[in-house]
Amino acid sequence: MRVTIVQGLEQAYYNLVHMIAEFLPRLLVMLVIILVGLVAAYLLGHVFRAVLRLTKLDRVSEDAGASRVLRMADLPSMTELLSRSVFWITWLGFILIGVSVLGVAGLQEQISRLFRFLPEVFIAMLILFLGLVLANFLSRAALLASVNAGVRSPKIWSWSIRFVIWILAISMALDELGLARQTVLAAFSIVFGASMLGLAIAFGLGGQDLARRALERYLGNSAKEKYKEPQPL
């Protein structure tokens, strides 16, 4: 009995020492990888920031209206945001590689799943960014056209266009990520359909006179009402 207990304790001690002997080098390797990753991420982020400044990305971002949205969300400039993203993504990659070196059961599978998911995250981010740029460009074009044509409440048109494109981009991004695919599709259809139906009812019931005047104007029956300006040339 006593011998068995002593043997068990010896075995446990032996296993513990063996595990620590196996684990310590891996831990050391992991720390080295994370440290190297930190340096690499820092350098890469720095180079990326310099390249973006050379290409004057901030000006393009300002032009597209993306910078304004970033400011509204209290985020840094586009160059800073992208270079910080590069830093964190690189370092996170190294951290995950380092953790996988530990050889903890179950963790390997989760890490590989995370890596497989990264491209979809990037595509979703790209869709969101393009949606943002397109929404700002088209909403500004609509605002200018409405103001110059003397349309009442021009911001309503501008914001409607921005809203529809944002909803579309967010739906596409979520669909790309595979998050609640059916729910997103149904929600988008409901929101979009309800908006259109609401507009149709509002215009049809509340704006009969407006609709008639608009049709008459487009069909040329009240050309005299059209605003005339002095000839510019």
């Binding site: 000006r59 300002e62 032009d63 460009f137 500004r140 200018l144 103001v147 110059n148």
Partner: peptide, 13 residues
């Protein structure tokens, strides 16, 4: 090119 050039000219109207 502080904003799209066509938009800039339209803003002058």
């Amino acid at each position: 090119s502080v904003i799209n050039r066509d938009h800039l000219v339209q803003a002058l109207v």
